[in-house]
């Protein structure tokens, strides 16, 4: 099988920033385009959040949290479950996160960690190899993923 590969294109941070910018731009654009007088804050065409935007003006604090914060939260919960040996629940939390951010290499890293702790080194290696196809070249996560690939390769020799 071919050697592992690294990303050098668009990174996760860039994707996240672009997504956040798109959401903000679209929301601001929407808020600006819809002609709702500020003295009619109960216009039912708008969401509560948009009505608040209309009344308060755009505020960075009002921006929706990025999906990564949710993914981070699920990852934290997974680590807590793993710490007490609840492997299935931990794995499911990571998979929930993966369905939200399917190209996040750190989720593959966490799955590889879980598999290794469960004694499934071959599974960890395969997961790590796939994670590398999403990882940004030179990042810490690449090093971590490669560690699992190498340890899997050593064991299979």
């Amino acid at each position: 099988m071919a050697a592992t590969v690294q990303l050098m294109g668009v990174g996760r941070a860039a994707v996240r920033n672009r997504r956040l910018a798109c959401v903000l731009a679209s929301v601001l654009g929407f808020a600006g385009c819809v002609s709702v007088p500020v003295d009619q804050p109960n216009d039912t065409r708008l969401s509560t959040w948009e009505r608040q935007e209309e009344q308060l003006g755009s505020s960075p604090d009002m921006a929706p949290p990025s999906r990564s914060s949710l993914v981070d939260s699920l990852q934290r919960s997974a680590r807590e479950r793993a710490a007490v040996g609840q492997w299935d629940q931990a794995g499911e939390l990571v998979l929930r996160a993966l369905r939200i951010e399917p190209q996040a290499p750190d989720l593959y890293l966490q799955l590889a960690e879980l598999r290794t702790r469960q004694g499934n080194t071959a599974g960890a290696e395969a997961i790590a190899r796939k994670g590398l196809t999403y990882a940004e070249s030179g990042s810490r996560v690449v090093e971590e993923l490669q560690r699992y690939v190498q340890s899997g390769a050593v064991l299979t020799q």
């Binding site: 990303l7 050098m8 294109g9 196809t133 940004e136």
Partner: peptide, 12 residues
């Protein structure tokens, strides 16, 4: 679908 696309592999 959300429009995320894997980056280009380093060896490409």
């Amino acid at each position: 679908p959300n429009q995320e696309r894997r980056g280009q592999p380093a060896a490409v």
